[in-house]
Structures are given as structure tokens and as C-alpha cells.
Design a protein around this nucleic acid. Structure first.
Lengths: 344, 344
DNA sequence: CGCCATAGGGTATACGTATACGCATAATAT
DNA sequence: ATATTATGCGTATACGTATACCCTATGGCG
């Protein structure tokens, strides 16, 4: 039946073959400088030959470092439970790669917002640090964050960088992105610009985007009309509802800035059903540049965030915090992608 | 400065408080029947109170079981490296949840097809088993699979269930899905149906879909024309190229069955640019039901796979194999979603 | 030529858990 | 009544690594 799957070699096996003691093997492989170059090279060669890999469990047990990061998705308790926010998904790749590059494993965990705190607690024991991604009710979220801080857990989260300061935050330049979107809409001649997305402190990121929009409008000498803002969470249905409410209010508007692409897509449906022509009657800008944004009719102008940079930065920041190195909040640039929905 | 983050309690702490020995705590918590109900209840209560969690590293080290599954994405070495196949992403949620339900952790790892074997090898040491997801060159893939089998690694993969039998496979009923698509196209009056997607043994899943299509056509008394098949991998560009080649061949066709939605979307662009009306001149069916499929013009008829069931089944099958339980290959039903691109 | 610093590496041990044994007590069989 | 077995638990130990500490040769220095 072929050979045995040859029992996993240990550092003792290597040590024996190299004619040294086990600790020397450990030192050599971990890069301690108190082992001679020749010995180290020899040990590395033998390890390579035997396909030796350090036993993560033993190593972690001894050193009390897991070399693992946990990635927690906080989800809205929405009915469509199998759907994951496409935006976060596209960050996953870069986070994974960055972890691999740094020699860290990545543990994935999904969590309903309302869930037992217990799971998160466990995750904090299984990893050196936690990356938090999540839309949703920000207040609920905060209590969990405070709990984490209290426990001394290292973590970093994706979100609005401007606010409070619970823990370490990495995020896009939402204000700047909002400004870009606003400036572009003004440039194509729009003056009455509506905003769809929570502007309350339940959703700091959306709020930042709205602030940016207002800033751009004022810079162009246009005063934003608060009556043209409608709350919405990141889903098509919510966007549809918000746009419908806007239309039914009877107030005139010639552009819509949606706080996310999903909202924008729902809004486009509502606008089209109301007989409004896009972009002639109403120009529209979304946020996120999800794949569907280039498939809508008309194709959707939107803001693309630097997801690759985001993953790298999140991991970087978290590792810095874990190692006790100083780390400053950082903001990532975002870029406006112009498509048909704002074409003059 | 508040209290210390109170050192993590160990089984010894619990044992002391319960007035028993450490092994008894271990036995009680793991459900050994050689501990009395009263003692067990008491231990569990104390553990709960202290927020005790078993140290995974120590536990794994001792028992040689990691209680972790590794998820490996094999990617095409394509230029757009930050993009992950949206189809696999939607499976991630259900896999994660199923793992959590069974008390397993999930380790994520992306790999370029051409990468060093080393990474996969390591992953096989860090987990009890591996879940393999990947499109791409099937031959390259096979050599890696054989390597895994040789090492005695437990794994399960997503793919075409019909073929060879290297390892354990879970997949959709691609033949049946192809039949549904074909029957639908025939039903709306199409006779000259093109197929875009590799039909070689480099891509067994696509081949199955093609086989299903042919079967449905023959069942309706229509002989499929091999000249209407064009190779394509799962990307928009590839779909665009394949459709263009088809159009330029001058052969007449009144329908296209694309092996994936991305191919379909690329093909739609090519067809529209060639002045063909969809669906009047050419009806089109895709595969996967990615989010963008409902945003195209016209919206895309496609096949929806049971991704939630897929995740569950993959984890189930892998755990069965790990535990040495018997496990049969299983196939998941797929469902045709009818949209505008095939509306009569 | 003796003294000390340094490089290089060995010895002993701890990390927290799970399991093989052994040993009482109590329950049953003979 | 004694022999047998099951029940419930303690004792001892191993899993594979990393680190604190100790020891031995050198070489540099006065």
C-alpha cells in the first residue's frame, strides 16, 4: 500500500541529523543570532529536505503567540442571510495575502450583530488580534468594542476614521470622496443634489460622505437642502424605499448621491419606474464600485475604494498594535469612477 | 488603570475551585461518561462563570487534532489579482457557518495555481482537512491532488462529480443544469444553440454543462452543431472574445449558453456591438447567478446553484472523511432562473 | 601570562491539555 | 460471605516547542 505517510518530523529529528540539540534547531530556524552561520545553514538544509514545518500548536503553546489573526464580519441580521456584502468580500483577498506574507494565519468568523458576545470572546483567545468589518447598527457595535478594549484585546476595524477613537480605525477618506462626488455633480450642472443614506451617528461613514458632499456644494456656492436627504441602509430595497419617499415628497432634485452602490441600484429602479430619465433628469452617483455597478442601465458612476490598500493597511496596523509599536490612524484615498449615470 | 485583563483561567483553576483534579475537568468538559452527573454540572457551571475556554493550542498539541479546516482557493494567475470569483465568495458564508456549527475553525488561504507546493503542504499540517475550491487549469490541479492523496491528507473539493475519482468531490448537477438550460432554450423556439466554455477535459464542469445541453437538444430532436462551440474561461474578456469569434465565423445561431455568467456578460457586449438584438435575435443563458446577472440589459437568465447547501455538504463530507466515516459522492440540484434574456 | 567578555550551544523546564493506568469504593454475582 | 466488576476519580506523563540559565572554549586586553 505504498509507504507510510512518514510521521511528521520534529525538531528533535532535525537536531539528531544535524548533530546538535533541539533548542539549537529552534534557535536556528527562528533566526536567533547566537547560532553560527554554518550550523544554521546546515539545519535549514536538513529541515527543507525533511519537509519539516514547525508545529504551530506546540509553538503557540510555548510562546503564547498564535501567529493567527481573526477576521470578524459583523452582519446585519437581514433576511437574505447567504448574501455577504460584496464590498467586504473584495477586501478579503488582500487581507489574506498580507497575512500570508507576514507569516500569519487568518481565521474567519461571521457574526450576527445581535449574537452572543461569547463567540467574539473566544476568537480573542484563538488569535493575537482581531480585524473587525461591519456595517450595521453602530451603537450595538460600540458596546462590543468597549468590551474588547476592556479585555485588553488587540483589534483594528474598518470604518470612519474621524470619530470617537474607540480602538484603532482604518478607513477610506469618506469626506474627500464625498467632495469628489459632489464636485463632479456640480460640474455637470446639478444644483439640487439629494443624498440617500443614514446621516445620523448610527453610520459615521455615511455621515462623512454626506459632509463631503455638502462641503463641495458650498465650495461651489450652492447651499445643500437638508430636505433632500433620506435615511437608507446598504441594500437595494432600502435604496428603493428612500428614493420613492423622495419622489413622493414632490421636491425637485436633479441628482442623487447614494451612500452605497446597492442603495444607488435600488434608487435607479425607483427613479426609472417614476418615469425619470437617467441621467438627463437625474444624475446619480454610488459608492463602492461593486461589480454590478458596471452592468446597470445606465452604468453607474461611483467611488472606488482602495481595497487592496485597505487589506494591507488593516493587517499592518493590527500587527503594529500587537507588537506594541506606535501606529497612527490612517486614511486611504478613494477615486471617482465616471460612467454613464452622470454623463452630460 | 482598571483591573488586570485577569489572566486566562486554566483547567487547573477550575479543578481547584471544583475540588477535583485537572483531568477530571478535562473529562467533564469533553463529555467523558466516567464522571458523575453532579460533578460534571458543577464543573460546567464554574467554567461558565470564569469564562473559561479550552486552550486550543494545548488541546491540539496533546490530541493531535487541530479542529481546524483549511479552505484553499486556487486562482487563475490572472492579471486582475484583487478579483475573486464571485461564485466562490458566496460559498464562503455557508462554509464558515457550518464550520462554526461543528466547532471547527476555518483557516483561509489563497493560492496561485502555479505556486509552490509548499504552502499547501503547510496547510495540510495546520488543519485536519482541506477544502479545495478552484477554477483554472485542471491538469495543473490534478498533480497537486495526487500529491495530497499520496501524503494521506484528507480533503474534499468542489467540482465535477462525474469524473476520475481523485479524492472526494462535491458539486452541482452540471449535466442536469445544462439540460434545464437547453430544454428552456428549445422551448422558446431556439434550434441553433451555441456553447461558450471549454469543453475539453481541462474543465470538467463546463464539459458537463455542455453534455447536458446536447442531451436536451437531442431529446427535442435537434442535433447540436459542434461548430457552434467556442472555448472560454470564466471571465468577461474571454466571453467577449469567444462570442466575437462565433459571430465572425458567419455561422447562424439563435441562442447562446455560456458556461458562466462572466462569459455571458462578455458575450452580451460582443453581441450587442454586432447589432444583434437580445433576446429577439439571440437568446442567452448564463451560469452561477452572480449579482451582476440581474443588472444586465436585458437581465440574464441563468442557473443558480445551491451555494448554501454546497458549503454544508463540503464541510459534512470532509468531516466524515476525517472521522473515517463512509461518505458517498453527492450532487446538488441547480435551478434555472428565467429572466429577460430568454423571454419570448 | 592571567582575566574577562563573547560567541556558540547544551540542560532543564514550562506552556495547558488529554489519556493510559491505577486505586479505591460500591454494586453485583456466586 | 467472598469474588468480581463497574464507577468515579487521582497520578503520572507526553504532545513539540521556546526560552532562561549555565557552561565551555576562544580571543582580546592589560
Amino acid at each position: 500500500m505504498g509507504r507510510q505517510p512518514s510521521a511528521k518530523p520534529t525538531s528533535f529529528d532535525i537536531a539528531y541529523l544535524a548533530g546538535v540539540s533541539q533548542p539549537t534547531v529552534s534557535r536556528a530556524l527562528r533566526g536567533s543570532k547566537s547560532v553560527s552561520a554554518a550550523t544554521r545553514a546546515n539545519i535549514q538544509r536538513i529541515a527543507q529536505e525533511l519537509n519539516y514545518t514547525v508545529d504551530k500548536n506546540a509553538s503557540s503553546l510555548r510562546s503564547q503567540r498564535t501567529h493567527t489573526l481573526a477576521l470578524l464580519f459583523f452582519e446585519d441580521p437581514n433576511p437574505d442571510e447567504s448574501m455577504i456584502n460584496p464590498f467586504f468580500l473584495s477586501m478579503l483577498g488582500s487581507i489574506t495575502r498580507e497575512c500570508a506574507r507576514r507569516g500569519y494565519d487568518l481565521l474567519i468568523s461571521f457574526q450576527q450583530m445581535h449574537n452572543d458576545w461569547h463567540v467574539t470572546y473566544q476568537d480573542s483567545h484563538r488569535s493575537d488580534g482581531i480585524i473587525l468589518l461591519g456595517y450595521g447598527d453602530y451603537q450595538l457595535y460600540l458596546t462590543k468594542l468597549e468590551h474588547l478594549v476592556e479585555m485588553g484585546t488587540k483589534f483594528v476595524r474598518w470604518g470612519s476614521v474621524s470619530e470617537d477613537g474607540i480602538g484603532l480605525t482604518v478607513g477610506s477618506d469618506n469626506v474627500g470622496a464625498g467632495e469628489q462626488a459632489g464636485a463632479h455633480l456640480v460640474e455637470v450642472g446639478r444644483r439640487r443634489i439629494a443624498f440617500l443614506g443614514d446621516a445620523s451617528d448610527h453610520a459615521p461613514e455615511f455621515q462623512d460622505r454626506y459632509d463631503g458632499l455638502c462641503r463641495a456644494m458650498r465650495a461651489a456656492g450652492v447651499e445643500p437642502d437638508p430636505a433632500l436627504q433620506r435615511d437608507a441602509v446598504s441594500s437595494e430595497d432600502s435604496g428603493y424605499a428612500a428614493a420613492t419617499s423622495l419622489i413622493e415628497s414632490g421636491r425637485s432634485f436633479d441628482a442623487v448621491f447614494a451612500a452605497s452602490d446597492l442603495i444607488a441600484i435600488g434608487a435607479m429602479r425607483a427613479l426609472a419606474e417614476a418615469g425619470l430619465r437617467l441621467p438627463q433628469d437625474v444624475a446619480i452617483v454610488g459608492f463602492d464600485d461593486i461589480p454590478a455597478a458596471s452592468q446597470t442601465t445606465p452604468t453607474l458612476t461611483t467611488v472606488m475604494q482602495d481595497m487592496k490598500g485597505a487589506g494591507t493597511l488593516l493587517v499592518d496596523a493590527l500587527l503594529a498594535r500587537i507588537d506594541g509599536r506606535p501606529v497612527e490612524q490612517r486614511v486611504l484615498p478613494a477615486r471617482l469612477i465616471k460612467r454613464q449615470s452622470t454623463a452630460v
